[in-house]
C-alpha cells in the first residue's frame, strides 16, 4: 500500500494563531467571571467589607478580558485584509460556486458521515471548510453584539472615549434591562460553539491526519502533493 505524498503548507500565520489562543483565553475568563457576576456564590466570610474586594476584582477581570477580547478582534479584522489566502476576507466570501461545493461536501462527508467512492481532492478544504466559515461569520456577528452590549453597559462607568463611544447603546434599547439580558443570552452561544468546534477539530485530526490540531499551534497543515503545482510553489491553491 502506498502512502499519500503530503507537503507541509503554512496555513495559519502567526497573527491568526495569536488571535485564536488569546481569544480562547479571553472567552474562558469572560464566561467564568460572567457567570459569577450574574449569580455570585455565597461568600462565607466574617471580614469587614473594607478589607475585601473580591467581587470588585471579578468585575475588574471581566472588564480587562473584555478589552483583550475586543483588541484581539481588531487584530483579526486587520488580518482579514493583510493575511494569506486562508485568513483573508476572500476565503470567507460565500458568493462563489466553490464555497458551496465544499459546503455540501462537508455536509455529506463530515456531518452525515457518508463515504465517497472516488475521492476528489479538490473538494477538500485546506484552510477552513465552508461550514466552519459560516459558523465563524455567525460568531463574528455574535461577538459584535457582545462588544456592543458589554461596552454599552460599561460606558457609564468609564471616562475613556472608547467605551464612551458605546453610550448610545443603553438609550437605544431603552434601558439596562434588555441590554444585559441580550448580553447574557448571547453568551450561551459561545459555549455551544466552543463545544462543537473543539469536537470537530478533534474529529478532523483523528480521521484525516492532516495536522488539524497542530496547525493552530505551528501553523502548518499537510496537503496532498498532487495539489501543489510545483515543489516550491504553493501560491495558486484555491483559497478553500
Amino acid at each position: 500500500m502506498e502512502t499519500k505524498n503530503f507537503k507541509r503548507v503554512m496555513v495559519w500565520e502567526l497573527p491568526v494563531r495569536i488571535f485564536h489562543w488569546v481569544n480562547v483565553l479571553a472567552l474562558l475568563v469572560l464566561i467564568i467571571t460572567g457567570f459569577i457576576i450574574a449569580d455570585p456564590p455565597a461568600l462565607m466570610s466574617s471580614q469587614e467589607a473594607t478589607n475585601l474586594h473580591y467581587f470588585g476584582y471579578v468585575r475588574f477581570i471581566h472588564f480587562v478580558a473584555a478589552y483583550v477580547f475586543f483588541f484581539v478582534m481588531i487584530l483579526r479584522l486587520y488580518w482579514v485584509f493583510a493575511g494569506n489566502r486562508f485568513s483573508s476576507w476572500r476565503a470567507f466570501w460565500p458568493f462563489r460556486k466553490k464555497f458551496w461545493r465544499n459546503f455540501w461536501h462537508v455536509m455529506k462527508i463530515d456531518i452525515m458521515l457518508q463515504n465517497e467512492k472516488v475521492e476528489d481532492v479538490t473538494k477538500i478544504s485546506i484552510g477552513h471548510n465552508s461550514v466552519a466559515k459560516l459558523s465563524y461569520i455567525a460568531m463574528f456577528f455574535l461577538a459584535v453584539i457582545m462588544v456592543i452590549t458589554g461596552f454599552g453597559l460599561y460606558a457609564d462607568m468609564s471616562t475613556w472615549w472608547l467605551p464612551k463611544m458605546f453610550d448610545w447603546v443603553v438609550p437605544f434599547f431603552g434601558g439596562d434591562y434588555l441590554v444585559r439580558t441580550i448580553h447574557h443570552v448571547c453568551m450561551w452561544f459561545f459555549i455551544f460553539f466552543a463545544m462543537v468546534h473543539v469536537y470537530l477539530v478533534l474529529y478532523h485530526d483523528w480521521l484525516e491526519g492532516r495536522g488539524e490540531v497542530s496547525s493552530m499551534f505551528a501553523g502548518y497543515k499537510f496537503v496532498r502533493g498532487e495539489r501543489l503545482r510545483d515543489e516550491d510553489k504553493v501560491e495558486d491553491i484555491d483559497p478553500l
Binding site: Q47, A49, T50, H53, Y54, G56, V58, D176
Partner: peptide, 22 residues
C-alpha cells in the same frame, strides 16, 4: 438621571466585597 442607583448606593462596598444578603 446620569448615574445608576448602584453607583451612589451606600451598600456598594458590600457589593464590591462580594458580601450579599442571601
Amino acid at each position: 438621571y446620569a448615574k445608576r442607583v448602584h453607583d451612589s448606593c451606600y451598600r456598594r462596598p458590600y457589593f464590591d466585597a462580594g458580601l450579599f444578603a442571601e
